[in-house]
Design a protein around this nucleic acid. Structure first.
Lengths: 193, 193
DNA sequence: GTCTATAATCGGATAGAC
DNA sequence: GTCTATCCGATTATAGAC
């Protein structure tokens, strides 16, 4: 005979909190977001957030986990015709900025790197130890030039999604690609210093 | 006969507060900085800050005034050989990031634009109404391409001064110019779309 | 699992003495 | 011009009832 009633234990509260936290951190950054605000958006009591995650910092850490496998996604860009790597990279980046989960992660990171050195250190390490290593050993391009490409991508996102300067904010993805991809391509192709 | 004693009235307290505020806002952004912290660094009582400036917002506004005439400095870049405008722009930008006053202003803006929409709106307006207008009417380049150049400069500063990613953080100014200036030049030269 | 109550800080702003 | 004292609001985090 089947056991009666619903099993005690995991509801979806944890997921609701996580989703709310994603939004709040994306909108306001680490300092600006509050446990109370997250709890309110999740429709639960503030104490529940502590119950599930322990501290604000741990909620943040849970939200900022990369929503997809970085190695996989990098590999996807680095394979394929060498003379189109710039375009593939820009298109991937724009796609990440459009999917809700990774977009929220990016926004949260941007809004936190600038104000808390802890987050800055985290991102810096990922860039230096994962991105630069992987890209430079695959493409044979010096790190300085990769950092040039990276800086262009970061700046584009700042202008388009954070500052929302026109006409960049309202441009089509294709227009962005047409303008930015050649620059990325040249950073990753020219093999000077 | 000369009047005896020192005239009552303005001491240099106001300037001390302003200098302290510049540092605090640069380090922590608008939200992170506190009136109490500013007062402490200035060596005065917290009430003095309100006495001189009224509110935290007004202190911020006073600090964020451009320390030099924007029109003058833009004119300096836009005059001169057309095929070197990219290099002049990058060099000016790097110089502004090195002089303490403008550097503090930039850092304060970066650390606030990302977290408070009010500051973002301020900067957005300056970029759209002053920078874009002036540059596009002088060089005859479409705004979209100017925004590309701007985004590259913003991203470079983020990587070099905020994230401090290596090797970009420790590179010489000349290396930065050698890599970035051609990109800026191409944004401001190519006259497509 | 969920909530109330509360401890312990810290923030901006103001009133008013000297 | 400068300071003390204080109001009022908001925050993270915890203890413990149900």
């Amino acid at each position: 005979m089947a056991q009666a009633g619903r099993r005690p234990g995991s509801t979806n509260t944890r997921e609701q909190i996580l989703a709310a936290a994603r939004n709040q951190f994306a909108e306001k950054g680490y300092d600006g977001a509050t446990i109370r605000g997250i709890a309110a958006e999740a429709g639960v009591n503030a104490a529940m957030v502590h119950h599930y995650f322990g501290s604000k910092e741990q909620v943040f850490a849970s939200v900022m986990r990369f929503p997809m496998n970085p190695h996989e996604v990098i590999g996807e860009v680095l394979s394929g015709p060498r003379d189109e790597v710039g375009e593939r990279m820009v298109r991937l980046y724009l796609r990440l900025w459009q999917e809700p989960e990774s977009r929220a992660m990016f926004l949260g990171l941007v809004r936190s790197v600038t104000t808390t050195e802890q987050t800055a250190a985290l991102v810096r390490e990922f860039i230096e130890q994962v991105l630069f290593v992987r890209i430079s050993e695959t493409l044979g391009v010096p790190r300085f030039r990769i950092s040039g490409a990276l800086s262009q991508l970061v700046g584009m996102a700042m202008a388009r999604y954070v500052l929302r300067v026109e006409p960049m904010a309202s441009a089509d993805d294709d227009e962005i690609v047409a303008m930015i991809a050649p620059v990325i391509q040249s950073y990753l192709t020219a093999s000077s210093t």
